[in-house]
Amino acid sequence: MATDTQLDLWEVFIQSKAGLPYMHAGSVHASDEKMALQNARDIYTRRGEGTSIWVMPSKYIVASNPDDNDMLFDPSNDKIYRHPTFYVMPEGAKNI
């Protein structure tokens, strides 16, 4: 007997309303992309949660290493000039 299979793992992203970003909803098991889409529809949009679905094989997701968090994310903490509140506007300036 062949070893059991539960098919491949896919990640599911749902857009809840047109124009909004796709959010990670969870995963499904499926043999191929068509079935993955069908399964995602049957499992993650049972209560009208979605208007659009993306699926992708979980193995293609590349995640950053938490050990690198200092290097990756801390340097942007002090770049406050990237935020609009950093700039001083003259009193009475409008629409800016």
Partner: peptide, 22 residues
């Protein structure tokens, strides 16, 4: 569905659903 969500969440710890079922 909830079984499925939980299997998926547990799979992130490096155990497959096949193993869980076994």
């Amino acid at each position: 569905g909830h079984g499925l969500y939980l299997y998926s969440a547990a799979e992130t710890l490096g155990v497959s659903r096949v193993e869980f079922i076994e």
